[in-house]
Write a protein that binds this DNA or RNA. Sequence first.
DNA 1: AACCTGACTTCGG
DNA 2: TCCGAAGCCAGGT
Length: 103
Amino acid sequence: MASDFFERIYKIIQRIPKGKVATYGQIAALAGKPHAARAVGWALNNTPPQLDLPWQRVINASGRSSFDEETKRKLQQALLKKEGVKFDKSGKVDLERFQWNGK
DNA sequence: AACCTGACTTCGG
DNA sequence: TCCGAAGCCAGGT
């Protein structure tokens, strides 16, 4: 578990400012592995809750929540809305506007 | 080492 | 918009 890759991912996610979002692929790229989007998802799914990571700010390349269950999608959207991120009717985020620039 | 699964992404149809 | 297939990475249900 204690791989550098994970450490980098955690740090990167913690750098995402409130009111902004990032995609799995983007995080993977910042972590040094442009094609490890899936691994990022795996990492998040296995992240200890006590780390208090803003996981809600991580969404897929379509600007949507990747959860199957609607209850979880709603939760994620609710948390983001509270931070100022807006969703359209279909539950999509305007990435052009809310995606974190990486700085 | 091989095989499977997954909070992914991209391309076609 | 929706679905399937292929490519990619890490860990082991």
